[in-house]
Amino acid sequence: MTTPGDSAAETWPLWEVFVRSNRGLSHVHVGSLHAPDETLAVRNARDLYTRRSEGVSVWVVPAAAITTSDPDAKGAFFESPVGKNYRHASYYSKSEGVKHL
């Protein structure tokens, strides 16, 4: 399933935009735009999302190329982590107060 809003009927397809504002951070999804191809997409993204120097790096991806996890399958897809609290440090209460742990 593609990102929401993707539609084959549009003259200019939908692209999702990711911007990394600084070295050391990761790319963050900032929104979408329409463009006929990847060259104009990345340029439009630069114009639309980095007018105030908010971007060190801009990624654009066709919405159609993105695979999303379907919320209907949320139960099965994301069930496994639930209840496995031993993966979180806070589970280990006896270690509270011991330095450097």
């Binding site: 809003g5 003259t11 979408s32 329409h34 007018r51």
Partner: peptide, 23 residues
């Protein structure tokens, strides 16, 4: 005015996540 075009675009994007296309 350029900002306003941009704002329209952000909002069309948000509406599009609900299935409404720009066209």
């Amino acid at each position: 005015v350029q900002d306003e075009a941009g704002h329209g675009l952000y909002l069309y994007s948000a509406a599009q996540t609900l299935g409404a296309t720009r066209d």
